[in-house]
């Protein structure tokens, strides 16, 4: 994964958050927190980084909310095409 960015100036070149996987977003958030903790950024960059971190967190939280168990059984229909039917978990 590319070094996640940070200054405000090149904010446009960052990958769009909506397209990121949970893992990518979490990794960038971690990198941002570490940079903030190392105090390497000037104030403006710090604020920009914080804002991006907030957006990343929201994205991650959204991914975590999409948690729902759904089990489908795969069968082939008459045309030999795979289709699904709900599957009841054996108890």
């Amino acid at each position: 994964m590319a070094e996640p960015f940070i200054g405000a100036a090149d904010a446009q070149e960052l990958p769009p958050i909506e397209a990121m996987s949970f893992e990518q977003a979490l990794a960038e958030l971690e990198a941002i927190v570490q940079r903030l903790e190392r105090g390497q950024l000037d104030l403006e960059a710090s604020i920009a980084a914080y804002e991006r971190g907030t957006a990343l967190r929201r994205h991650c939280a959204e991914k975590l909310r999409e948690a729902q168990l759904r089990v489908d059984k795969l069968t082939l229909d008459a045309a030999g095409k795979p289709t699904t039917t709900p599957f009841d978990t054996p108890q």
Partner: peptide
């Protein structure tokens, strides 16, 4: 999932604390 949520919260808190400290 619960651990990830906690990790996420912890990171967000650290980021907020860092910025607060900085300011």
């Amino acid at each position: 999932r619960r651990e990830l949520a906690q990790q996420l919260d912890a990171l967000a808190e650290r980021a907020a604390a860092m910025l607060g400290q900085r300011l």
